[in-house]
Amino acid sequence: MDAFRAKIRGTVILAPLTRGGNLPFRRLCADFGAQVTVSEMAYARYLTQRRPELALLVKAPNEACFGVQIATNNIEEGAAAGLLAMNAGASFLDLNCGCPIFEATRRGLGSALLRKPSKLSRLVAGIAEGVPLPFSVKIRSGLKEDEPNAKEVVKVLQEAGAAMITLHPRSQQQRYSKAADWDLVAEIAHDPATTVPIIGNGDVLCHWEAERHILKRGVSAVMVGRGALIKPWLFKECLDGKEWFPSPEERVEVYHRLSLYMKEHFGVDAKGKKKAFYFLPWHFSFLARWRPTKRELFEDHPYPLLQDGRHVEAVLTESEGPLSQLPPLERLLRVIHDDAHLAISEALWDSETAEEAVAALTALAEARAAEWEAAERDGSKDARAPAQYKSEGWG
């Protein structure tokens, strides 16, 4: 327990991400310095039934501290799933008590577990006793915005044997619609009654935000989800203590590496490509949202940048000029359009080298970037605004 807590202290942790937490993406994040990673949420019942869910237990070779997140409300199923995770090489087990989506809550899982803290305490104690791995729990602030019960939940969880607690300070009701309440995280982290490491999660896009939460708010570590999906090199920025503003060519190199990892993991045949393309084009709905958020331009903004894209775009238009003045490849990589994301993914998949990928995407940008930009502005049914992705079921 002590060794585990020492390992996670001061780190930036990759959150469990529905769809986004696939092995190739976690491997990419680890390349950029992610020291602690967590699997996509797995239903414990499906794991014990040896369903395809077992694939979620496989870790990349460079994942130094890999946690498996499970969803369950049953001690026996949770413990059995934990043993499977341990045998697969997991460093710790995590219980999802934060997922707000109906698919989970209707089964009494995810954030629905916050309804009865005493029952949750028995669940955690039972699983912790049955699995010789550090057992962490990820929670939300409560079910309703005006009825937070995170303090009570933290108290019973630490008494039940939780190794650490990650707090996503939004309610089930809020989902992702409002800014994360980091004051609540700090209040719990500084409470003398809190005896376990508190990990804060929510609205972290830039390294200085992570620094602020660790140094000024006193959390043990920071967990990032959407921020990592937008820029997988966020971990490098946090380790280096400075921003990295990759050119469009450098970003293509990163994205090409992700496609190579998907080929290696899923296979290069038609079946493997079909599996990979469930993920790869989808990733560009986030990667396309990257912007050079320079510290001197944005650090003093009172609202989280992840929640205020309009402000980011307004500031950058003033400093960079209008989008039409940027190089074609830069413009292509910023397009929010399903057809563009599929075409980018096809070009990456077909390119043997990063240089080939840059050439292919540059040609694609010159031919079609303006067309997709126009479709995005006109609200084409195939053009998706970033705001639509705020309701995804990230654990």
Rank of each mutant, 00 (worst) to 15 (best):
H256Q: 13
W394L: 13
A15I: 14
D308Q: 05
H213A: 11
I70Y: 01
V268K: 14
R212Q: 06
K138D: 12
D146G: 01
S345N: 07
E147K: 00
L23R: 03
D240I: 10
A179M: 06
A228D: 11
R291S: 04
D181Y: 00
V268R: 11
I8P: 04
T105Q: 00
L54R: 02
P24G: 10
R26L: 03
V68D: 08
I198W: 02
R122E: 12
N201R: 04
A369M: 08
I230Y: 00
L234G: 06
R226H: 11
E330C: 00
S136E: 14
V68S: 02
V137N: 01
L120N: 04
R122I: 12
A162Y: 07
A15P: 14
Q35D: 08
A314G: 08
V222H: 07
L83A: 04
G272Y: 14
A71T: 06
V156P: 08
L215D: 07
Q307P: 11
F66C: 12
R122T: 04
W244R: 14
E296M: 01
V358P: 00
V137T: 11
V58G: 10
A363M: 08
L239T: 06
E147S: 04
P132I: 04
S91T: 04
V219F: 13
E366L: 02
P16G: 09
D146T: 11
L287G: 08
P100F: 07
E211D: 14
R226I: 14
S177H: 07
V254R: 02
V358W: 00
S118N: 02
N87R: 03
R170C: 07
S118V: 13
L167R: 04
I127M: 03
C65N: 01
F235Q: 08
K274P: 09
D350K: 13
F66T: 03
K231Q: 15
L332C: 03
D350T: 14
H341M: 11
W290F: 15
P322N: 02
G126Y: 04
E103K: 06
R289G: 11
I230E: 03
T293I: 12
A104C: 14
Q325N: 12
L114V: 13
I188R: 00
E243D: 15
A359K: 10
D94I: 04
L260P: 10
N96D: 15
I188D: 00
L323Q: 09
G267S: 08
V204M: 06
L229K: 01
V185E: 02
K116T: 08
M41Q: 05
T362C: 06
L167A: 12
T72W: 12
L361R: 01
D31S: 09
A79N: 02
L323H: 00
G20A: 12
S141I: 09
D350G: 09
P292S: 10
A193T: 10
G225L: 04
